[in-house]
């Protein structure tokens, strides 16, 4: 406590507040891009989401142009990513009829991956999906996708029965099982999808801020010990960045896999 009280943690002077210290919810506040000219809702976060979408479309259009039966380098890379979604996720999880869902899964995967990587790209340095509005939008889409797929396949009643009542449950347990299954399959799934993605990126960005901003402040202080601590914090932030790269890719993959998993269970014949 004696040492900690020396470090400017809370309300540590005007210089610390200038750097946005301590990192917190306020670090995720968006700034309007061009107040007065563009509407205020057009913030830097919305702009970077739009840039991500444009980049993704440009990439896929570029990759799919002039495709050959024997792929070149560019096409081979594109096919590798496409096959990850098409074969490893869609085909292996959904199985029969997976073709319909490949565009959705590919869109989800690329959208999340690129926006997550923006957290480590020096122009943006902010993972778009640490703003939960975007994440709710994606989760809503996935929720609609798997529920509508199930309803289309089994009919409304049939789908409800399939997703709330596992086969072979004796009827006295129905009163317990049906609400539980409804809760877990219809209500909780989209929330966990959204919160998992959001929380990973939010926390990851927060950690990055702690190391980078805190390290910078410490480096700027007069004490030699603080300088050393700040320097090591900044060095360590590279390891955190590497970890965040991994988390970005994993979260994009998990969201896609879980969406495919939900679709698969919704259109399954029996549990």
């Amino acid at each position: 406590m004696g040492l900690l009280s020396l470090i400017p943690l809370e309300g540590g002077g005007a210089e610390a507040e200038l750097h946005g210290w301590p990192p917190g919810v306020d670090s995720f506040k968006a700034k309007p891009m061009w107040p007065g000219v563009l509407p205020d809702w057009f913030t830097n976060h919305i702009l970077q989401a739009i840039i991500a979408a444009i980049l993704i479309i440009a990439f896929w259009v570029w990759v799919t142009r002039n495709q050959k039966i024997v792929p070149g380098k560019k096409q081979a890379v594109g096919e590798m990513i496409y096959d990850l979604v098409r074969n490893s996720i869609a085909r292996d999880i959904i199985g029969h009829d997976y073709h319909k869902y490949v565009p959705y899964l590919l869109a989800v995967f690329s959208f999340i991956l690129v926006n997550n990587l923006f957290g480590e790209v020096f122009i943006f340095m902010f993972p778009t999906f640490s703003k939960i509005g975007f994440v709710y939008a994606l989760a809503l889409c996935s929720w609609l996708l798997y529920n509508l797929a199930g309803i289309k396949k089994h009919g409304f009643v049939g789908y409800l029965k399939l997703s709330t009542l596992p086969a072979g449950v004796p009827w006295p347990l129905w009163f317990l099982i049906i609400p539980l299954e409804f809760l877990s399959n219809i209500i909780v799934r989209p929330l966990t999808l959204a919160l998992r993605l959001f929380a990973n990126l939010f926390a990851g960005h927060l950690v990055v801020l702690v190391f980078v901003v805190g390290g910078t402040i410490l480096l700027g202080s007069a004490e030699v010990f603080y300088k050393v601590a700040g320097g090591s914090a900044i060095l360590f932030s590279f390891a955190i960045f590497a970890l965040e790269l991994l988390v970005s890719a994993i979260q994009a993959y998990i969201f896609t896999v879980l969406t495919a998993q939900y679709v698969s269970s919704a259109i399954a014949q029996e549990h």
């Binding site: 968006a30 809702w41 057009f42 913030t43 976060h45 919305i46 989401a49 739009i50 991500a52 979408a53 993704i56 479309i57 896929w60 259009v61 990759v63 799919t64 495709q67 594109g78 096919e79 496409y82 098409r86 490949v102 565009p103 959705y104 590919l106 869109a107 989800v108 690329s110 959208f111 703003k131 939960i132 509005g133 975007f134 994440v135 709710y136 939008a137 994606l138 809503l140 889409c141 919160l195 959001f198």
Partner: peptide, 30 residues
């Protein structure tokens, strides 16, 4: 955890556009 409405709507629209592009050009090409 409180969503900002513009972000939610922009997310929906962008994702819709992406889905459309994937379904119309990218996936059929592959």
């Amino acid at each position: 955890l409180l969503p900002e409405l513009p972000e939610f709507l922009v997310g929906l629209v962008l994702f819709g556009v992406l889905w459309f592009v994937m379904a119309r050009t990218v996936v059929p090409m592959f």
